Simulated assay, not measured.
Amino acid sequence: MRASTMHADEMDHDVPLVRRLVAAQFPRWADLPVEPFDSSGTDNAIYRLGGDMAVRLPRRPGSAAQVEKDLRWLPRLAPLLPVPIPVPLGEGEPAEGYPLPWSVYRWLDGENPSADRLTEPSLLAKDLAEFVAAFRRIDLPDGPPAYRGGPLSMLDAPTRAAIDELRGVVDTDAAAAAWETALKAPGWAGPPVWIHSDLMPGNLLVVQGRLSAVIDFGTVGVGDPACDLIVAWNLLPAGVRNDFRTVLQIDDATWARGRGRALSIALIALPYYKDTNPVFAANARHVIHEVLADHENAA
C-alpha cells in the first residue's frame, strides 16, 4: 500500500511494514501499538509508536540522508535552543522490503499552527524570534551547508519557471516584480550562521498559542540567516511581522532576501503540491498573497 503519496519516487509504507521493522530491530518496542499519523510533511512519513515515540520513514531516497544528519547534529543542537527539538532514540536499517534507513524519535506534543487560527500571534512572534536568535548564536564547528543557505540567485531559474507555470492561478506579473526586487537586495556578506532553514508551519508545534517545539531538521546547517525569516510570511500576520523583525534587528537587505526566499518556496511548491498536499498548497497560496501585499505596500 502507498499512503499519502506526494512524489513519483515515493517508497511504499504502511502499518504492517512499520510493525515488522520495529519488531525485528527494536524488539523491546515490538508490542507497542503503531498508528499512522496524518502529516503534511513532504520528506518523511510519520507513525506513532506507543504513546511517546514516533517512527519516521523517509518518503523517497533523496530524504534518506536526513537520518544520519539528525543523529549527528540534533543531540548537539538540542541543549542550545529555547524549545524542545526531536531527540533520536534509534536508527533503523533497510529491511522488510523497505530500502532506506529510518529512525525512532521521542514524540513531541503540540499541534501545527495555522496562519488563520493563531490565538497568541504577538507572543508567538516573540517565541519564534527568540528561537531564530538562539540558532544564530550557535557556535558549533564544521556545520554542513544549509539546504537553503546559499545566494538567492541560485533559485532564479526554478522560481521563474514556477511563475510561468502559475499563469492564470496567481498574479504572475506582481510575483515577477516582487522576485526581481528580492534579487536586487545585497547578498549576505557576513560569515555563515546556523539556520533551521525550513521554518514552515508544518515544522512548528504550539501549545495554547505559544511555540512548544520545532521539528524536522533535514535542512539544518550554516548559511544566509535570511532563510529563517520565511516564517514572517508563511505564518505571522502582518500586524506582528515587524515585531518579529525588530527583536531580531534585521537590516533591509536581509529582510528583502527573506521575503524573496518565502516567495520562491511558495511559487515552486504550489504547482508541485496542489493535488497531493492540500495543506502545503494552501499555505503556499497564503504566502504568495502576503508577500505580494507586503511588496506593494513597500513600493
Results as ranks from 00 to 15, higher is better:
Ala3Ser: 08
Ser4Arg: 13
Thr5Lys: 08
His7Asp: 02
His7Asn: 04
Asp9Tyr: 01
Glu10Arg: 10
Met11His: 03
Pro16Trp: 10
Pro16Ala: 11
Arg19Ser: 01
Ala23Trp: 08
Arg28Val: 12
Arg28Gly: 12
Asp31Ala: 10
Asp31Phe: 02
Leu32Tyr: 02
Val34Thr: 07
Glu35Cys: 08
Phe37Val: 15
Asp38Pro: 04
Asp38Cys: 04
Ser40His: 12
Gly41Tyr: 02
Thr42Asn: 12
Asp43Phe: 06
Ala45Asn: 04
Tyr47Ala: 05
Arg48Ala: 13
Arg48Thr: 14
Leu49Asp: 02
Ala54Gln: 10
Val55Ser: 08
Leu57Ile: 06
Arg59Glu: 07
Pro61Ile: 11
Val67Gly: 04
Trp73Leu: 15
Leu74Lys: 07
Pro84Arg: 14
Leu89Val: 07
Glu91Thr: 14
Glu91Lys: 13
Leu100Thr: 09
Glu111His: 13
Asn112His: 15
Pro113Leu: 03
Pro113Asn: 11
Ser114Pro: 00
Asp116Phe: 10
Arg117Ser: 15
Pro121Cys: 08
Leu124Tyr: 05
Asp127Ala: 05
Phe131Asp: 13
Phe135Ser: 15
Phe135Gln: 11
Asp139Lys: 14
Leu140Met: 05
Pro145Ser: 13
Tyr147Arg: 14
Pro151Arg: 14
Ser153Leu: 10
Ser153Asn: 07
Met154Asp: 15
Arg160Leu: 14
Ala161Pro: 06
Ala162Phe: 03
Val170Cys: 09
Glu180Leu: 06
Ala182Glu: 01
Ala182Tyr: 03
Ala185His: 08
Ala185Leu: 11
Met200Phe: 12
Pro201Asn: 15
Arg210Pro: 10
Phe217Ala: 04
Phe217Pro: 03
Val222His: 09
Cys227Thr: 15
Leu229Ile: 05
Leu229Glu: 06
Ala232Met: 08
Arg245Ser: 08
Thr246Cys: 03
Gln249Met: 13
Asp251Phe: 02
Ala253Pro: 03
Gly260Ala: 07
Arg261Phe: 11
Leu263Phe: 11
Leu263Ser: 01
Leu267Thr: 04
Ile268Phe: 01
Tyr272His: 13
Tyr273Arg: 05
Thr276Asp: 00
Pro278Met: 03
Asn283Gln: 08
Arg285His: 06
His286Ile: 02
Glu290Val: 10
Val291His: 04
Glu296Val: 12
